[in-house]
């Protein structure tokens, strides 16, 4: 980890990035919706001091909602299948929160094990992540449960952090981050001592207390049939939680055709939809909403951890904030292992 001082403001830094040979993605409020999008000017960018986090995570820029993975055409009976190239464009995502940066670390695992998904990985390798530490987490935040914190550098190439006197520092943890930092003249190339985490220690106190993950996993190992899952029969079965989650990565594969040409697409999909696991025979292993919610929670706190030794949740709190019926994954995880949810 290298620590450098930044001259000027956060906005100045964004401006410098825009002058470089990168596509810049940052939090914006477009049409009453906060999300990560390509920007042309630093004025569009939401200030990290004003907005805690976007409704939509940055995930869609590495793993788009809909993406063509193959092309095909027929000439009479002759079928041709065409590949789809992923452009090797350099981009930088600035303004991520530590929870969202850590989320990419988690989903890297699924897209690179056994088979390499070039669509995700090509973009991932060409994207530099600059996160901004959180001074004001809200009452849905629980990143500290996952070894992350309001100023954690996990998953970030560069983390921006303030000292007690509000000077801005860049914490650089990767080569990719260093490569970018070298080209940014706002970053003074002279290593600094750690300015401390006073602001963030205070911030941490406003968050939900860390979950006891080993205890939760132990409980999940044995309570697949627990009555508690019936609680989630109130779940409406929409895809809000999955689609706003920075770590949910499930997808569907669908063809689209016009006359004799067409494309094959990967579209986001969600385990809360009944059709997700419906067999052609009519059999559905997850035929009720409580079973589907169980899958969601198990996947995040047990299955993914069993396989990749990492949880599929970073405590960003989006699913808690946006669930239309206030299903709270933190509360659910705590109560499943017999703990009082400490919110």
């Amino acid at each position: 980890m290298k620590i450098f001082k930044i001259t000027g403001t956060y906005k100045d830094l964004v401006e410098t990035l825009l002058s470089l040979d990168y596509k810049v993605i940052a939090p914006v409020n477009r049409n009453k919706l906060t999300r990560f999008d390509f920007i042309n000017s630093a004025d569009e960018v939401l200030s990290p001091d004003e907005v805690l986090n976007t409704v939509r995570p940055a995930k869609e820029h590495l793993f788009p909602m809909t993406e063509t993975v193959a092309r095909f055409s027929y000439e009479g009976k002759k079928l041709r299948i065409g590949d789809v190239e992923v452009p090797e464009e350099k981009s930088v995502i600035i303004g991520l929160r530590p929870c969202d940066a850590a989320a990419f670390d988690a989903i890297d695992k699924i897209f690179s094990y056994v088979y390499q998904d070039k669509f995700y990985l090509t973009r991932r390798n060409n994207t530099t992540l600059i996160s901004v530490a959180c001074e004001h987490p809200d009452n849905a935040c629980f990143c500290t449960s996952f070894g992350i914190s309001p100023d954690s550098a996990k998953g970030s190439d560069i983390l921006l952090k303030k000292s007690k006197d509000s000077s801005l520092f860049a914490f650089i943890s990767t080569e990719r981050g260093e490569d970018l930092a070298r080209t940014i003249n706002n970053i003074i190339p002279e290593e600094q001592p750690d300015p401390g985490r006073d602001l963030y220690e205070a911030a941490e106190k406003n968050m939900r207390a860390p979950l006891d993950l080993p205890k939760i996993k132990e409980a999940l190992n044995t309570n697949f049939e627990s009555e508690y899952w019936n609680e989630f029969s109130r779940c409406l079965g929409c895809g809000s939680c999955a689609y706003l989650c920075p770590t949910c990565h499930c997808f569907d594969i669908v063809d689209e055709v016009r006359y004799d040409k067409g494309i094959r697409k990967k579209n986001w999909d969600a385990c809360q939809f009944p059709l997700f696991t419906l067999h052609a025979s009519g059999h559905n292993p997850r035929d009720a909403q409580n079973k589907r919610y169980r899958q969601r929670l198990m996947h995040k706190f047990k299955y993914y951890h069993d396989r990749f030794d990492t949880h599929l949740c970073t405590g960003c709190g989006r699913c808690i904030r946006e669930c239309p019926v206030n299903i709270d994954i933190y509360e659910a995880a705590a109560e499943l292992c017999g703990c009082e949810a400490n919110i």
Partner: peptide, 15 residues
């Protein structure tokens, strides 16, 4: 402009 934002989570339908 409005529909561009839709993520097809079907929360509208499910709610």
């Amino acid at each position: 402009k409005e529909f561009e934002k839709c993520v097809k989570c079907y929360a509208c339908r499910q709610a």
